[in-house]
Amino acid sequence: MPQRWLITGSSRGIGRALSEVVLDAGHRLVATAREPAQLADLAERYGDAVRIAALDVTDPVAAQAAVRVAVDSFGGLDVVVNNAGYGNVNSVEDADLDDFRREIETNLFGTIIMTKAVIPVMREQRAGHIIQFSSVGGRVGAPGRAPYSAAKWGVEGFSEALSLEMALIGVKVTVIEPGGFRTDFAGSSTSLREGRAEYDAVVGATARLQRAYNNRQPGDPTRAAQVILEIATMDRPPLRLPIGSDAVKIIERADLGKLEELERWRGLSISTDFPPEDRPAAGPGNDPSEMSSS
């Protein structure tokens, strides 16, 4: 059965590949971009199956309007993909506060704004799937990308909390965590600054690696799009899905390191509790450890 999709950042990269894969599969789509003229060819190729909407994800009014296009044109909305985003390279010291705000506004608040715009529609339907784009940088702090990691870690926490609420109304949530893909993310859409000598070992190295890595990344945007299309058909999709062999390796190594650190400092961590005899008994509804996404 055809699904009704809305994808942010449809003009290039994985967003563009996903838009084409969704339409080729016979679904209907609201494709969005800051410059809708960049999507004109989609309308020419796919006709009534696609609607084009101008969208700055940081604008709540524009977000509501894009959702309204889906509802008015297709009668509802089954899948929303919060894909729009970008990430520059610079040191924490040298990135000014406006740089931090712009990246966090787009990558985190843009995701929150679009999510809040679609929830009422999906709540009424008692169905839907919200797919959030995070990153390897949303699981592992990336040197040179502090604003990006701050935003993407926010997306991860926001989406995990969201999933527990949405489960009560039949709406699914999945966080996609890409590694390196051959998109413009590492090209002209990114500002790469090696910065001062003190941080060259990590920030400068990140900028140089990004330039050398561009167009050599292992990830294929079309294959990523096909995986996301598959995820959107699942009754029980994963909450988190790293995509790309590099993403799996980096996250696996980081998670193992975090578990080792947790165990190493376990005694110090739990030493902060009241003695057992001074603690009230935990029961249903008053044990925070029971509130998890598992």
Results as ranks from 00 to 15, higher is better:
Pro2Trp: 09
Gln3Glu: 12
Trp5Ile: 05
Thr8Ala: 03
Ile14His: 06
Ile14Lys: 02
Leu18Thr: 07
Leu18Asp: 08
Ser19Cys: 09
Val22Tyr: 05
Gly26Met: 06
Gly26Cys: 08
Val30Gly: 02
Thr32Gly: 00
Glu35His: 13
Glu35Cys: 00
Gln38Glu: 12
Arg45Ile: 04
Tyr46Glu: 00
Tyr46Pro: 00
Arg51His: 04
Gln64Arg: 10
Ala65Cys: 00
Ala66Phe: 03
Ala70Thr: 07
Phe74Glu: 09
Gly75Ser: 05
Leu77Gln: 11
Asp78Ala: 10
Tyr86Ala: 09
Asn90Met: 05
Asp94Pro: 00
Ala95Pro: 00
Leu97Asn: 03
Glu103Pro: 03
Glu105Trp: 08
Leu108Cys: 08
Phe109His: 06
Thr111His: 06
Ile112Gly: 01
Met114Lys: 03
Thr115Val: 06
Val118Asn: 10
Pro120Ile: 15
Met122Ile: 13
Arg123Thr: 13
Glu124Val: 10
Ala127Ile: 04
Ala127Ser: 14
His129Asn: 10
Gln132Val: 05
Gly138Thr: 01
Arg139Thr: 07
Val140Cys: 04
Gly144Tyr: 03
Ala146Val: 08
Ser149Pro: 04
Ser159Trp: 04
Glu160Gly: 02
Leu164Asp: 11
Leu164His: 08
Glu165Trp: 09
Leu168Glu: 15
Gly170Asp: 12
Thr174Met: 03
Ile176Gly: 04
Gly180Val: 04
Gly180Glu: 09
Thr183Lys: 10
Phe185Tyr: 10
Thr190Ile: 13
Leu192Met: 14
Glu194Pro: 00
Glu194Asp: 13
Gly195Asn: 02
Ala197Val: 13
Ala201Met: 15
Val202Trp: 07
Val202Leu: 14
Arg216Tyr: 10
Asp220Gly: 05
Asp220His: 07
Ala232Gly: 03
Met234Ser: 08
Arg236Gln: 10
Arg240Pro: 01
Pro242Asn: 02
Asp246Asn: 05
Ile250Arg: 11
Glu252Trp: 06
Arg253Tyr: 07
Asp255Arg: 11
Leu259Cys: 10
Glu260Thr: 10
Leu262Gly: 09
Leu262Arg: 11
Leu262Cys: 09
Trp265Asn: 13
Trp265His: 15
Arg266Ile: 08
Ser271Cys: 02
Asp273Tyr: 13
Phe274Cys: 09
Pro276His: 07
Ala281Asp: 12
Pro284Gln: 09
Asn286Cys: 09
Asn286Lys: 07
Asp287Asn: 15
Ser289Asn: 13
